[in-house]
Design a protein around this nucleic acid. Structure first.
Lengths: 342, 342
DNA sequence: TTGTAAGCGTTATCAC
DNA sequence: GTGATAACGCTTACAA
């Protein structure tokens, strides 16, 4: 079933069918209708490969995700969903590529075989080989996250530095003087994972500015680790009254450790951080947090990518969002765990 | 950068380059090496569209997911991850298509523009237009889930009927006589969502066989709904001592409702169901449940699809898995809430 | 208003 | 062991 077949059955040439479809040249109404009838009857659709070959574009974008094996967080999943959704609205298909680990072949295929018109790149590291590679081959791309040389690429990102600083500020306002930051996994932070890195920065800065006692720990991205991490923290830092975190996955475990220590949230202990709204609202008690609007960010990434595909010469653009903290029920006035009385 | 350029620089013809790459015709070792050098130098890769056009296959599979807007459950996410992973291992790319709702264009593009060699279809309904459409156009596909005429397609699925029946059996063995099934959302079940439907069947059957009192309710896929649902259930059915569910997303809320009613799990009330292992292990207390092995199912779906693509005439195959119940800590002996003493 | 034909980058058949 | 060349299905410049 190809355009020639449609042409034959409609009694016109192939070009007329093509033009009737694209509207790039006027076609007599009668002819157009005749062609349309045949097309509907046979359920014809132009062959994507042939069209891509001729036009030099695929109407497809690549979405490079972290290797699937390591589960996606709620926030990451939100990005994927919103990118796919935004792309569908723009009539673009999305080619999914797990990158890193054993899947470099997949990334190379997507990048270098002219399979896509552009790429949305997730989970960018401060030094990221994929960014280098994409720049090298000149394929338009937009990062969700950015590298250590942010001006050299187009990206959207969450301002973890500001957000964590704000969380600390919020806790300080409530009277907390001893605060911990529970970061993402040590591997991730060591590998130069931007959010982890910038969370450290923001935390250190805010703690210094407010003259607080701060302690920073890394924690693997799962509930067990969160539990162990907080259990340890409560012992090693008995004066702690609050935690800020960007580690969603660890949070259920953190809650559990607090409950096991008979510390009520927010009565005895405050908890806050950065998380997907959906997630924050569903915790018990609902988490006071800077709500990441994954939907918007993903859609903006696609929007920027479409612009770059249309004109790759465009100057780079950056979009840093710092959503306000939504006050919910997980933070409250400080109540010393070990005070003068102890 | 195309094959002609490589040919020119290597001083051979285009066909020789092609054969050097594919190995489908012997090429002198010296020539082969010369060509390879040029290729490495220029980072050449065959154009995917041209190859697809010529070969009549795209080396790409479609993955049709539920509309992105409605969040994926943990189990669904597991399927996506494992399908992407398995495809990458087989050097296949994955084109993601949200279907249903406003995204029918995306589905049609994938299905009908020769964009993919085959499709993995998620979230199949008992009557599913997409199955009809795929059959109609003759595109190889494999379902994760199946329709009301299961023998007419190739699929992998989870035997919810058996699993829920087993859960009921397990509860009955522990002495529970009044058990509720918390199903997925009413919309989903009404729309002929297979798992919801088969859970009903399994529940009814098991309850009848064991001579128990059973009550079935539907519940939207989120924590709030789960909480509301159980709160109501506890009031309307005060004799209830256990719940079986396949609604992961609602479970945190269900726990909360039980806690609010001062019912300890498993001391006063037992909870069990079907869930991703990851999820079950992370609940508090860990959920006694039939663990869905999403990784295996997704990989098997890809495997079956590859076979069907290679030979579309193959008889349909079906793979129904019923993983055993993993005993954890959320079920225990029945302790009547309202007994003779009350 | 419509038709003819070139060409996109491959692969594979045929010829040498 | 290697080289011309046709063909895949489409879009579009040129011709009528």
């Amino acid at each position: 079933m190809n355009i020639g077949e449609i042409a034959k059955r409609s009694g016109v040439s192939r070009s007329t069918v093509s033009y009737a479809l694209s509207g790039k040249r006027p076609v007599a109404e009668a002819t157009r209708r005749r062609i349309q009838t045949v097309i509907d009857e046979l359920g014809y659709r132009p062959n994507a490969a042939a069209r891509a070959l001729k036009e030099g574009r695929t109407r497809t974008i690549g979405l490079v995700i972290p290797p699937a094996a390591q589960r996606l967080t709620d926030v990451q999943l939100g990005f994927v969903a919103s990118v796919v959704d935004a792309a569908a609205r723009a009539d673009l298909d999305v080619l999914l590529s797990p990158s890193g680990g054993e899947h470099d072949r997949s990334f190379e295929r997507v990048v270098t075989g002219a399979r896509v018109d552009g790429v949305v790149l997730m989970e960018i590291r401060l030094e990221d080989a994929r960014v280098t590679r994409l720049t090298e081959v000149g394929l338009p791309f937009v990062g969700i996250g950015h590298t250590s040389r942010p001006e050299e690429m187009t990206w959207v990102d969450i301002d973890y530095e500001t957000l964590i600083a704000r969380c600390v500020g919020h806790l300080a306002d409530l009277g907390h003087r001893h605060i911990a930051l529970v970061n993402r996994s040590a591997e991730l932070v060591a590998a130069g994972y931007g959010p982890g890195h910038r969370a450290q920065l923001g935390f250190s800065r805010a703690v210094a500015e407010r003259g607080l006692q701060g302690v920073q720990v890394c924690c693997a991205d799962d509930a067990q680790a969160g539990r162990a991490c907080v259990e340890k923290l409560l012992v090693t830092h008995p004066e702690l009254t609050a935690i800020a975190t960007l580690n969603e996955a660890a949070m259920p475990g953190m809650h559990r450790a607090l409950a096991d220590a008979h510390l009520a949230v927010p009565g005895d202990f405050s908890l806050t951080g950065v998380a997907a709204r959906h997630w924050a609202e569903n915790l018990h008690p609902p988490l006071t947090a800077a709500d990441i609007l994954a939907d918007e960010l993903g859609a903006q990434a696609v929007e920027l990518l479409i612009q770059r595909i249309a004109d790759p010469g465009l100057p780079h653009r950056q979009l840093l969002t710092a959503p306000p903290i939504s006050l919910r029920e997980s933070t409250g006035p400080a109540r010393p765990r070990v005070g003068p009385a102890a």
